[in-house]
C-alpha cells in the first residue's frame, strides 16, 4: 500500500511540475517574436543616445 502511495505521489508531482513548466513556456506569446531573429530584426528600434554623465 505504502509503495503504491509513494509511486502515485511521485507520478503526480512529475506531471504537475513537467506540465506547468511546459505550459508556461509554450503559452507565452513573447517567445513567438523573441526566439525569431528575423522578426526581432524587423521590429528593432535603435535607442536614442544621450550624453553619458559618468564612467567608472
Amino acid at each position: 500500500m505504502k509503495t503504491k502511495t509513494a509511486w502515485f505521489t511521485a507520478l503526480l508531482l512529475f506531471l504537475v511540475f513537467s506540465s506547468s513548466s511546459t505550459v508556461a513556456v509554450d503559452q507565452s506569446g513573447c517567445l513567438t517574436c523573441h526566439t525569431n531573429e528575423k522578426i526581432i530584426k524587423m521590429l528593432y528600434k535603435p535607442p536614442a543616445t544621450g550624453p553619458s554623465e559618468g564612467e567608472g
Binding site: 513548466s21 513556456v25 517567445l31
Partner: peptide, 28 residues
C-alpha cells in the same frame, strides 16, 4: 544590436528560470 533581444530557444527547457513563463518576471 537587435540580437540582444533574441532568446536562445535551446535554453528554455533546461533552465528552471524559464519554468514560470516570461510574464512571471517581465509582466507585459
Amino acid at each position: 544590436m537587435y540580437k540582444g533581444y533574441v532568446i536562445d530557444k535551446t535554453l528554455l527547457d533546461g533552465d528552471p528560470h524559464f519554468s514560470r513563463g516570461c510574464q512571471s518576471c517581465h509582466k507585459g
